[in-house]
């Protein structure tokens, strides 16, 4: 009980910080962090609470980004409709790929998701709508609901914060819901969950679709923020990066993945001058995390808090 109160308190504190952040930090950087924080949190719903390691989440993130960019730039959708279209497309993609992937477990699940994501990647590379190597550039930010001008970074920041908060709340609610309890049961002991009469594939599929949809929401939002959908969003490296963010912050913790995402983005930003050495730095940080704090940053803090309360 106590742990949950603490969780809520920490989240409320972070939210206040996020409200004030764009006055201190460059808003575009903050928006990038929020998009990736949502992406990592969505990914964590699957690995942290069902125990399924997807290695293809870039297909939802990147796929949704392309759909949003295309609908807004070419078809003239307003931004909110573009984001909705991208997110819905990710949901449909997640349903289609999930039906195939959840039949397998462990490394096979990871390989199937990777293979499917690569198919999406090559589609993005080859299709006439996606601009090949260039991606879709110069996506207009437009006016939300016809009145909120998103070309102002500060305005857009609060829209992105609202989207992030919504997505994060959906994840939080899912984790702490009757459905979330069943997910935890499946993660803890799948045969036992079956023997209690749970058709586990249905729950796994639902979690997969939820996770993919929210990853799509993050990708769609990112496309509006950067006015760009590119191959980077759909590439396998993106799938790997979200694993890294989640592990760094704390797998299976509520705010860990968001913390991990923010740190990775900050590192990429601060060490920009190092060029390709950023990757080496990331590697070192990752190795240190795995060696020193197994549960990730938020995971270790939570474990410490539990210890001192006892």
């Amino acid at each position: 009980m106590n742990g949950k109160n603490l969780e809520v308190l920490v989240m409320a504190g972070l939210f206040v910080l996020l409200l004030a952040a764009p006055f201190v930090v460059y808003p575009v950087l903050m928006m990038q962090m929020l998009c990736f924080a949502l992406f990592a949190s969505a990914f964590n719903l699957l690995i942290g609470y069902v125990g399924l390691l997807s290695f293809g989440h870039a297909m939802f993130f990147g796929g949704a980004a392309y759909i949003t960019a295309h609908t807004v730039k070419v078809m003239g959708f307003p931004p909110e409709a573009g984001i909705l279209a991208g997110t819905l497309a990710a949901a449909v993609l997640a349903l289609a790929t999930g039906v195939l992937a959840i039949r397998r477990q462990g490394i096979y699940f990871a390989m199937v998701t990777l293979a499917l994501a690569q198919m999406v990647y090559f589609y993005c590379l080859q299709s006439p709508y996606t601009g090949g190597e260039d991606g879709i550039q110069g996506v207009p930010r437009g006016r939300m609901f016809g009145m909120i001008d998103l070309s102002n970074d500060l305005t857009l920041y609060y829209v992105v914060l609202a989207i992030f908060t919504f997505g994060f709340f959906v994840i939080y609610r899912t984790i702490h819901s009757p459905f979330g309890q069943v997910l935890k049961a499946i993660r803890e002991n799948e045969p036992r969950a079956i023997s209690l009469g749970y058709r586990v594939d249905q729950y796994k599929l639902m979690a997969f679709v939820l996770s993919g949809t929210l990853a799509g929401l993050a990708g769609s939002t990112k496309a509006i923020v950067f006015q760009l959908a590119s191959l980077t969003d759909a590439a396998w490296q993106m799938s790997g990066e979200v694993v890294l963010m989640t592990l760094l912050g704390g797998l299976g913790t509520v705010i860990g993945p968001a913390v991990g995402a923010i740190l990775i983005i900050l590192m990429q930003e601060k060490f920009k001058t190092l060029g390709d050495w950023v990757l080496v730095t990331q590697g070192v940080v990752f190795v240190l995390t795995v060696l020193l704090f197994r549960k990730g940053i938020a995971g270790e803090i939570a474990a410490y808090a539990t210890r001192i309360r006892r």
Binding site: R173, P178, F179, G180, Q181, L196, Y198, Y203, M206, L210
Partner: peptide, 15 residues
Amino acid sequence: LQRAAGLHYQFWRSE
């Protein structure tokens, strides 16, 4: 008890 009580698919409800 959850399954019989119909409390297993709802991800939108509080625990």
